[in-house]
């Protein structure tokens, strides 16, 4: 039973990690605590519904359309709402992301109605049996895709010029501007990446459940994941997501479903009190 819980938690936690990674990328780039990350994930489920069910596109084409639409959405959000607030205090930016979340939710309900939509793609839906352990192939695929995405973005930040510029901009906007980096373009890129990651998570969760605005609550589990892992740390977001997934399974399985929140949010409180920069984050030191 323990192995089962651990493996299921790992698979689910990988999706949380993916959404949390998107959150961390945006935070790293612009210091924006994006409360709209949950609803961006919901957008993924509905984009997939539109592409596969409404437009009837073949799945590989649908994937390209979904990713392109997600990137565009991220860029538009950054251009219209975040860029004008550049240099403003934290609160207005946070309020913008909260308002954005409410607006996107209302738009989805106007466009698609409030009934959840069944989402069926050509992703595998069978069961993989390994001894006593049974794993959903869809959950496994979600985990594998999440790990591939994490690997790709890790390599992107580590080994590409664009990734290097993003890291440099995240470290110091002023220094990046002085070095001739187009900071606006870099930030738009970060929003595109963050939105793509959230949307991929939404495609999987939409098929595991239904395409519904209620998925936002699950998407918001990326928040404790990213705080536990470290707000500015890419490996931290991934580890945080997995930890949340595993804790959720163990608490629900061995104690009660309600215990899930206690065991996820207590580590978050402890982390904020004892090590606010998270497991993998760097402590910021300032000279006085």
């Amino acid at each position: 039973m323990l192995v089962q819980f651990l493996l299921t938690g790992l698979a689910l936690g990988s999706i949380y990690g993916l959404v949390a990674l998107g959150f961390a990328v945006i935070y790293k780039a612009e210091r924006v605590f994006n409360f709209a990350q949950g609803i961006l994930m919901v957008c993924g489920a509905y984009l997939a519904y539109t592409a596969t069910t409404q437009l009837g596109l073949p799945f590989p084409v649908a994937v390209i359309v979904i990713i392109a639409a997600a990137a565009l959405l991220g860029i538009v959000i950054q251009f219209l709402f975040i860029r004008p607030l550049s240099g403003q205090p934290l609160l207005p930016v946070i309020m913008i992301t909260i308002a954005l979340s409410i607006i996107l939710k209302a738009l989805i309900e106007i466009l698609y109605g409030v009934q959840p939509k069944p989402l069926a793609t050509s992703l595998p839906t069978g069961v993989l049996i390994l001894g006593d352990v049974r794993l959903s192939q869809l959950n496994l695929t979600a985990a594998v895709v999440s790990w591939v995405c994490m690997g790709v973005f890790f390599a992107f930040f580590r080994f590409t010029k664009a990734g290097l510029l993003m890291r440099a901009t995240a470290d110091s906007h002023e220094a990046a501007i002085l070095s001739g980096v187009n900071v606006n373009r870099i930030n738009a890129g970060a929003w595109a990446i963050g939105t793509i990651l959230a949307v991929i998570g939404g495609v999987f969760l939409g098929q595991i459940q239904l395409a519904s605005t209620e998925l936002e609550h699950i998407g918001l589990l990326a928040l404790p994941a990213v705080v536990i892992g470290g707000l500015q740390s890419i490996p931290g977001a991934i580890v945080g997501g997995i930890l949340v997934g595993v804790i959720e399974q163990l608490a629900s399985g061995y104690i009660s479903p309600k215990a899930r929140d206690v065991f996820i949010y207590i580590p978050l409180l402890i982390m904020l009190l004892v090590r606010p920069w998270g497991l993998f984050g760097n402590r910021e030191l300032g000279r006085v």
Partner: peptide
Amino acid sequence: VAADATPQ
């Protein structure tokens, strides 16, 4: 708001 029903 469960995301999975394995424990159940």
